[in-house]
Amino acid sequence: MSVDDTTVRRIARLARIGITDAEVAPLAAELSAILGWVEQLAEVDTRGVPPMAAVMPKRHEWRDDAVTDGNVREAVLANAPEALSGFFAVPKVIE
């Protein structure tokens, strides 16, 4: 699989990672090499094989529908880059 520059920009956009023009070509080469290598998986006959869901199968657990935590607003916001009036603050998203 060869990844072209347009694809690199698209993936970076999907991953929300800003990249400079100078980074595009080297990334395209690296990603192409890695994807080219993993493509050998296509030669494995997996007809009728289910994809792995859990390596240690276990029954899902249920717990009582009761409050276990809360009233810790300060702790929740303690690491926020920006907090205002008890909320996480972000740039304006509505014009």
Binding site: I11, I34, P50
Partner: peptide, 27 residues
């Protein structure tokens, strides 16, 4: 690099060829 590889193999049109196949091989 790994986030971008991961994003690529999970993206529309590639998911089955890469991710699902890898999970079958894992089985």
């Amino acid at each position: 690099r790994r986030i971008m590889i991961g994003t690529y193999v999970l993206s529309a049109g590639f998911y089955d060829a890469y991710f699902t196949q890898a999970q079958k091989v894992r089985t």
